[in-house]
């Protein structure tokens, strides 16, 4: 049987299982939401606890909520000391 030449494969170099922060790498998780956080700016004292606690980094320091990625977990509303953040059922908005 004739010997086949060893297939030359491209050197793909150093590759590892790192992940770098990037926006929405698993898609728009906002579609998972049942309740949406709604901010009442009049009651808000800008303590930014919601900003710190949001596990999805969906709340900006200007208290804009990204509804594209907010999963509706309710942590922001739970942590808010002034009840400025409340959770509203999606179909009741």
């Amino acid at each position: 049987m004739p010997r086949k030449r060893k297939e030359e494969r491209e050197d793909i170099g150093f590759l590892t299982t790192l992940s770098v922060p990037s926006e929405g790498s698993v898609g728009k998780t906002g579609t998972w939401r049942t309740f949406r956080p709604v901010l009442d700016r009049d009651r808000c004292n800008k303590c930014l606890l919601c900003w710190i606690y949001c596990p999805e980094a969906c709340i900006s320091k200007d208290l804009e909520i990204s509804y594209d990625y907010c999963k509706g977990c309710g942590i922001c509303a739970e942590e808010c000391p002034t009840k400025a953040m409340s959770m509203v059922k999606e179909d009741e908005r």
Partner: peptide
């Protein structure tokens, strides 16, 4: 340079890591 290691890796990405 924030990054993390060892999170989910999809079938589309895995073989290359092993080949490396």
């Amino acid at each position: 340079y924030p990054l993390t290691h060892g999170s989910v890796i999809y079938p589309d990405d895995y073989e290359e890591v092993r080949f490396s």
